[in-house]
Structures are given as structure tokens and as C-alpha cells.
């Protein structure tokens, strides 16, 4: 059976990269005695996939990984066991059963993610809230997107689904996943350059809040959290 784990990543563990988070969870499964399934062959590995890697320096309240279990576990009990074996910086929030079909893994169905962005060092100009609102009311925001192989100009405005100013922070809902993917730092970099704010005058802390799948039909978006697609397991 398949299960989805939701976890938080906070504090000093923001300096641990994605591959090391994977290694951490592989070892955590063993320490917490989670009956996880393995692939076959001479070097079997755990069946485990992460919805979306989180970059070094970012924190998150909504990270996901899907695993395959060889036997059911009680959700509350499993969360307790995993947290007992965790370290400061990672907290397991839930483990839920998800449907067995292949196309339901977090990685495949991921459609959007929420971010909270706040100033870490330096400061923004006093009227930044107005400037940000103006920036967002543009019809299109064209940027040069660099990939390993090529450079191309894209319009990122349609990939910003929702936004708001929340106190002194910025809340963004951005496209995520294999089709369209927008990183929050690209939005902020573009904002700085459009408003001619010097790059080194301010730096931001990026915090991921949640990840979503899209269950909408006929081009109408209906975002639901990856967690809500699973069911608590009780034994």
C-alpha cells in the first residue's frame, strides 16, 4: 500500500540539501521501524519519492514524500515513532494512505505551491507595497529563464496564481511541478530589477507553506493540498 508523509523543515536544517534529506528519511524509516518496501536486485533501495526538492536555504511547513508500505501502520503511532527518531529541524506532520495508481504520486500530480517571503537582511524601499502591487498588475512579466541547456524568454505572470501582502511579508501561490514550475526567488529577483532596487540592498527568506494537486476540470483550477488526498490509517 502507498502512503504519503508530510513534514516540516525548519531552523538549521535549511542548510541540508535535497539529496541529504532523502538520505535522512531512508535512515529514519529504519530507526522508526516503518515497514517500507524495497526494490529487488542486488542493491535494493527503498521505494520513496519526494514531491518536489526544496533548495538549500529554504524552510518549509509542507514537504511531501510518498512511500510504499509492506504492511499497514497506524498513522498516529507512525508519526509518533518517526518524530521520536527525528532531529531538531525536521518534524513529521502526518502519514496517510493514498490510492495505489501510479499517477497519484506527489511528484506527478503536483500543480502549485504557496510561499511566504520576508526580508532577511537589508530593507526594501518605503513604498515597496505599492510597487509590488503595480508589479503584479502587469499583464505580462517577461524574464529570461536559464536552464542548463538553453536560455529562453518566458512570461511568468500566468504562473503566479495568487498573491497578497501579508503584514511585512509577501504571500505567493506559484505554479509547481513538471509542466510549469516557478521558483519564488525568480519572482523576487524580477521585482527588484523592474523597480531598479539594487540587488545587494536586500535579501529574502523563503518559506514554503503547502503543495497542491489540481483536481479541477475543463481548465478550471481547483487546488487541493497533497495531504488532503490521503486518508488517516487507524489500526
Amino acid at each position: 500500500m502507498k502512503a504519503r508523509i508530510k513534514f516540516r523543515k525548519y531552523g538549521v536544517l535549511r542548510f541540508i540539501g535535497h539529496l541529504d534529506v532523502m538520505r535522512f528519511f531512508q535512515k529514519l524509516m529504519r530507526r522508526a521501524d516503518i515497514p517500507i518496501a524495497f526494490t529487488g536486485g542486488y542493491s535494493p533501495h527503498m521505494i520513496m519519492s519526494f514531491a518536489s526538492p526544496l533548495g538549500i536555504g529554504l524552510t518549509s511547513d509542507g514537504e511531501y514524500l510518498d512511500i510504499e508500505l509492506t504492511a499497514p501502520v497506524d498513522s498516529r503511532e507512525a508519526v509518533r515513532r518517526m518524530n521520536e527518531e527525528c532531529v531538531e529541524g525536521i518534524e513529521v506532520l502526518s502519514i496517510r494512505q493514498i490510492p495505489d495508481e501510479k499517477k497519484t504520486t506527489g511528484m506527478t500530480i503536483l500543480a502549485a505551491a504557496d510561499y511566504l517571503i520576508s526580508v532577511k537582511n537589508g530593507s526594501l524601499p518605503e513604498n515597496w507595497k505599492n510597487e509590488f502591487a503595480d508589479f503584479m498588475t502587469q499583464k505580462e512579466i517577461r524574464v529570461i529563464k536559464q536552464t542548463k541547456r538553453s536560455e529562453r524568454e518566458v512570461d511568468i505572470r500566468p504562473l503566479i496564481y495568487r498573491w497578497k501582502i501579508q503584514g511585512e511579508s509577501i504571500w505567493l501561490q506559484l505554479a509547481a511541478g513538471s509542466v510549469d514550475n516557478l521558483k519564488p526567488d525568480l519572482v523576487m529577483e524580477t521585482f527588484l530589477s523592474v523597480c531598479a532596487i539594487p540587488k545587494d540592498s536586500v535579501s529574502f527568506a523563503y518559506h514554503r507553506l503547502e503543495m497542491y494537486a489540481d483536481t479541477g476540470e475543463a481548465g478550471k483550477r481547483n487546488l487541493v493540498s497533497l495531504e488532503s488526498l490521503g486518508q488517516e490509517i487507524s489500526m
Binding site: 538549521v12 542548510f15 541529504d20 535579501s203
Partner: peptide, 22 residues
């Protein structure tokens, strides 16, 4: 941490210096 975010994000493998391991 003894080192600032700016330092840690600009060096190789910051995890070498943060401790807090299992």
C-alpha cells in the same frame, strides 16, 4: 549557529559546520 546565513550559503557543503546530527 556560529556562522551567518550569508557565509553558510556561499561555501561548499554548509552541513559540515552546523552539527545537530542524529
Amino acid at each position: 549557529l556560529a556562522l551567518s546565513d550569508e557565509i553558510l550559503l556561499n561555501i561548499e557543503k554548509p552541513a559540515r559546520y552546523i552539527g545537530g546530527e542524529v
